Simulated assay, not measured.
Amino acid sequence: MTVIAARSAHCGGAAARQFDTVVDLIRHMLHSEAIDLVVVDADTHLDAVARLSAWKASQGREDFAVLVVAQLLRPERMAHALESGCDDIVAGAFNIDEFDARAARCLARLGAGATRALRLEIAGYVLDRHTQSVTLDGASLPLNELDFKLAWLFFLNPGVLIGRPRIAAEIGQASVADIGATLGKHMHRLRARLKIEKGGAVGLRAVYSAGYRLEVDDDDRRSRCRQRSGLPYAIPEALSCDAAM
């Protein structure tokens, strides 16, 4: 953790943060801005991989990768980690250069997966990236190009807090300062054009001073995720795990 944090700070990357339990990590991912990479120390907490992967599948989360580090991982346990859902492994004596290379590869695959997605179906909404069209229960919704870009961003990451800087970049603004007070107007228009109503199956919630999050009714989310993954819907029990982001 110390080496990873030092390299991240030296390169000007995102700050690494340590979590003591899977539950602490999940709470962060539910209420804080989106993350890209979770690192699990499998020498002591290999079970964290399966527990985190089960939660990831149950929530339909495709927005982060899981990288395992381990000095003493036997081949059969490496296979178990991969079967449990980790994206890659740094095995043997820890080498920060190898870690950087594997982490970058995990993030590249994550980005490629998001780019390949062409159609999203959530709670009666169907978004088609090829035609840049959105329908709700079969009825077409009148979105312009900017509306569709924002809708795609949120529907691709349901339950994930999308920060104001990322929204500003999506809209084509260099910074949050450039978008200023117009951000609220963009979101108000998007809700109206998507026919998002209070108490409905889908909500677009403002998180004060942070950004916005698309919230989907739990029943719809669980149904979709069970069909896709076959994994149980369960929040993992508390356990100790070293995870850096």
Rank of each mutant, 00 (worst) to 15 (best):
R109E: 15
R213F: 06
P158W: 01
E215I: 05
W152K: 04
K195S: 11
G211Q: 00
R221E: 07
R191G: 08
T115G: 14
V126G: 02
R129H: 07
K185R: 04
L190R: 07
A139C: 09
L127F: 08
G138A: 12
L161R: 08
S140L: 11
C225Q: 07
G199T: 04
R222F: 11
A117Q: 12
R189N: 11
R191N: 08
L194P: 07
K198D: 10
R222D: 05
A117S: 14
I171D: 06
G200M: 09
G180P: 05
H130E: 13
C106N: 10
G163P: 13
V160D: 04
L107Y: 03
V216F: 02
W152A: 07
T135H: 03
R102S: 07
K149V: 09
H186S: 10
V216E: 01
V202F: 02
G200T: 02
W152G: 05
D137L: 00
H188V: 14
E170K: 07
L118I: 02
D137G: 10
A108Q: 14
L150P: 04
D218C: 00
T135A: 08
G211H: 01
S223V: 00
A104M: 08
R116D: 11
E215A: 13
G124R: 06
G184Q: 04
G163K: 14
D178E: 08
A123T: 11
L120W: 06
G113M: 02
A104R: 15
A169I: 00
G113S: 13
L143H: 11
Y125F: 13
L118N: 15
Q227I: 05
A123D: 04
K185W: 01
L127A: 04
R224I: 00
L204S: 04
H188R: 14
A168T: 04
F155I: 00
R224V: 00
T135G: 12
D217C: 08
G203C: 05
E215T: 15
T135V: 13
R129E: 03
R102N: 02
R119M: 09
A192H: 03
R205Q: 15
G163S: 15
Q227M: 03
G203Y: 00
A112G: 11
R213Q: 15
A168C: 03
D128V: 01
I196F: 11
A151C: 10
L214M: 08
R105M: 15
F154Y: 06
A201E: 01
A169E: 12
R193Y: 02
A192R: 14
A169K: 10
D219Q: 05
G203D: 08
D219W: 01
L204M: 05
K185Y: 01
F148L: 09
G138W: 06
C225A: 11
